[in-house]
Design a protein around this nucleic acid. Structure first.
Lengths: 341, 341
DNA sequence: CTGAAAGCGCTAACAC
DNA sequence: GTGTTAGCGCTTTCAG
């Protein structure tokens, strides 16, 4: 099989000039005569020349590759963020190498190592839900390798992060429930060490306080974000002697599980129990009743993360924090059909 | 900023030997003394040496990168296939570069060009729904660049393809409807030039014939796979003087749209109209009633595609066709609650 | 205005 | 056993 790509050398030979002349001509170096530039460019065009990124990378010590580590790629939330990252990356001439941690710290560490071996220039990461030790990321910082976290973050003081106004969002949810006439608002949260859990819990409390609702520890339950544990959490709520009349879930996935559990108990959404989710995945509009949810600006999260990354890599910017606004999209699952109680 | 990675040269200098000695020692070349091998390996370990893939790629003219082009990354179907591709790729030391066509032929062509510029070794592709001319892929074949299609395929005689038993699957759907007592089975298909449309229509006819149901051209409607056109298609069916009592959709997405339209007309699933989808995305179990659907073995599709790719690249295998089995997962949307009619 | 040469990190053929 | 050298494709001094 013959060579697949033409090199500068090939062009040079064909034109009977040196490689360096060709190289310069293609970059419009002023030293090169106009005529020569024309000739070179013409031939390059004709032969479909494209510079070999490997050679460039080797020379410049840069690969134009960004390593992205996410818990998984099949959740709409992450897929959509990746789309955002990709779009900014592409605009700036970067490629994206994706690696899934499958929510396992072990695989997350491996992902870092593998991507490093591939010589990515830096990382954009959403922590696995298991991860509580951050040594593998501290190592990157020590080596001055650019790093950006989104959604689930850590080391916030030293690393660029992109999140949403989790606390404010949660507060809005409680307000909304209150306005609809719900009075016993429960929250199904995630693991305590995750920033998103902490922030959303804080906002939940804020909201309860704002509305003069009593904080009842029984109404704050936790799950590990899996379907099973979400169901279990919902069951705990349903078995309370004084069960909630509204449930807010840390993400839509959890809420879908809760919804099924509620139905199993022959209770009805929204009249017996109001329901609000977080993320607003596509499915939110597919379920019946349609799910009220905090809209996560997923694509923009990706875009912001990529932009922070590039700022850091190319312009040496200091780490910064970007907090995006969310919005409560009210649908059927939290709107009382009868008169508000 | 100092150098981020240690090179063979660094190791060589530290050990006062030549670069080639180090290189050979690390590969357990028999020429090198056992003692030297030990010393070299030890230091390499200590310094976290990892070979520079750019240098290797330049030398060997290979990048170990696979270009993957998909209509989009946020649909569960594609995301899940990518996960499959990635898993096999990783096992075999390949990286995956993903590029979305956004269902546009133009962007598909650009994706090919960009990935080529990045020097991917070959492609795994699912055609955009717009694509009817295949010149950009023929070009790859001419240049002997490995190519594998999945799901939406073309050039089947010259290119490796991974699909599912579309025809058989459709037939099974019609049989199922028939057994449940449905008699006017409609099919919402996609654009005619797509292989998946053709094959599923063929199976739909097969099924009707098997069951001695009359083929009524009014019951075969087409959409461009968008929500809007799916809704329009469903509306056409609902406005028929003799409307269908069962609807089969070319994918779940289309069926969700149809479901909404049915509800708008105050008809009930499954009693007024039975519903079956294709793909079995996660949402299938989230909607009410839960959706009966053909289970698409998405992860395996990805795995197979990647394996075909590697067979072709590394073992020079001829193009082949892999057809995976599907299964009908019966849920609520197609099971009559009252007595079968 | 253009060419020669070095070097990015690595391997392999060829010395010795 | 180990070192030397050339070369993969490219840019960039330094010469001329």
């Amino acid at each position: 099989m013959d060579k697949k790509y033409v090199s500068l050398k090939d062009l040079a030979e064909e034109l009977n000039v040196s490689v360096s002349t060709v190289s310069r001509a293609l970059k419009d170096h002023p030293d090169i005569s106009f005529e020569m530039r024309q000739r070179v460019k013409e031939l390059a065009e004709m032969r479909h020349y494209s510079p070999n990124p490997l050679a460039m990378g080797l020379l410049k010590q840069e690969t134009r590759m960004i390593g992205v580590i996410i818990p998984d790629i099949i959740t709409h939330f992450y897929a959509s963020i990746i789309a955002g990252i990709e779009s900014v990356a592409r605009e700036n001439g970067y490629f994206v190498l994706i690696s899934s941690s499958n929510e396992s710290t072990q695989k997350e560490i491996e992902s870092v190592e593998n991507l490093l071996k591939a010589r990515v220039e830096g990382f954009i990461v959403c922590l696995s839900k298991q991860t509580t030790s951050y040594d593998h990321f501290k190592g990157l910082l020590k080596r001055n390798i650019p790093l950006v976290f989104f959604d689930r973050t850590c080391l916030e003081n030293e690393v660029s992060c992109v999140t949403v106004d989790n606390r404010e969002a949660s507060r809005k949810v409680v307000h909304h429930f209150y306005q609809q006439g719900y009075r016993r608002v429960a929250f199904i949260s995630g693991p305590d060490y995750l920033n998103i859990s902490k922030e959303r819990i804080a906002g939940y409390y804020d909201g309860l306080n704002d509305c003069n609702l009593q904080i009842d520890p029984e109404l704050l339950v936790k799950c590990d974000l899996s379907t099973d544990s979400a169901r279990a959490a919902m069951n705990r709520l349903l078995s309370l002697s004084n069960r909630p009349d509204a449930v807010y879930g840390i993400n839509d996935f959890v809420v879908f599980a809760a919804m099924k559990e509620i139905r199993k108990h022959n209770l009805e959404v929204p009249n017996d129990i109001g329901l609000v989710g977080f993320t607003d995945e596509f499915h939110a509009t597919v379920v019946t009743p349609e799910l009220t949810s905090i809209v996560h600006p997923t694509f923009q999260i990706g875009e912001s993360a990529a932009r922070l990354f590039i700022d850091q890599t190319e312009r040496g910017r200091m780490p910064q924090m970007v907090i995006l606004k969310t919005e409560l999209k009210v649908r059927e699952s939290s709107v009382l059909k009868g008169q508000p109680r």
